[in-house]
């Protein structure tokens, strides 16, 4: 695996990432970097490797080769348990369909990452409720995901991603399943909340409208990334 130094000041940086699923190459020498508090949109057509890049950056999937450094630490050198612990405490996640646990109430869903970190239930739910208020879904606290709309569910998912005060939020097509009005509201709330918490956001999307909320865009095509800001 190549070990090169990350760009100065970057919180999370990847260089020359390669990843293949069987005969399909998903990443073919992709680079990436993000600074604290920065919102970076990863754009590209379907099947270009955006989600794989996000999964590698988040330590969910190990790359075949290349380097990923988070806060000065090489992710490749960490065990699965170490990467899991990192995801629990330092990262937050928002997926396209929310992926809320259907049997838990909304507040229990938001409190879940805190509870996984060992926080007592009441304390975790109190913190969760605070985030739900900020995302304007506190009235849904006792409802189950099946009883709320798609937009509301996605806002609950955003609250869940921020509840541990993560340093990086990974959002994979967070508005992909929403109408434009709901999508924009979710993006506003996500970026506002992240910026106020000084959390970096890696935003995977194929919609320019969504990417407009970012500070910088990276385009992934055929497994290779290009920094659009630099090109401009």
């Amino acid at each position: 695996m190549t070990t090169t130094s990350a760009p100065p000041g970057s919180l999370l940086a990847a260089q020359d990432l390669r990843k293949a699923y069987g005969p399909t190459t998903a990443l073919d020498g992709a680079d990436f970097s993000i600074h604290p508090g920065e919102v970076v949109a990863v754009m590209g057509p379907s099947g270009s490797g955006k989600s794989t890049l996000l999964h590698c950056l988040a330590g969910i999937v190990p790359p075949d080769s290349g380097s990923i450094r988070y806060d000065g630490r090489e992710l490749a050198g960490m065990s699965d348990a170490g990467r899991s612990a990192l995801r629990r405490s330092e990262f937050g996640f928002v997926f396209q369909f929310g992926q809320l646990v259907p049997e838990l109430t909304c507040v229990e869903n938001v409190a879940l990452p805190l509870r996984l970190n060992g926080a007592p239930r009441k304390e975790a739910e109190r913190t969760a409720l605070g985030w739900m208020e900020r995302l304007e879904v506190d009235d849904l606290r006792a409802k189950r995901p099946g009883e709320v709309s798609g937009g509301q569910g996605q806002r609950v998912a955003v609250a869940r991603s921020l509840v541990t005060s993560p340093r990086v939020v990974f959002a994979d097509e967070p508005t992909g399943a929403l109408d434009s009005l709901n999508g924009e509201r979710v993006m506003e709330l996500l970026t506002e909340a992240a910026r106020s918490a000084n959390a970096a956001v890696v935003l995977v999307t194929h919609e320019a409208r969504v990417a407009a909320y970012s500070d910088r865009e990276i385009v992934v095509r055929d497994g290779r990334s290009r920094d659009m800001e630099r090109l401009v």
Partner: peptide, 16 residues
């Protein structure tokens, strides 16, 4: 399956 994977993604221990 998808839910399980996403729970693992945000750090849920397999033991849990």
């Amino acid at each position: 399956r998808k839910l399980l994977s996403s729970l693992v993604a945000f750090g849920t221990r397999r033991r849990t």
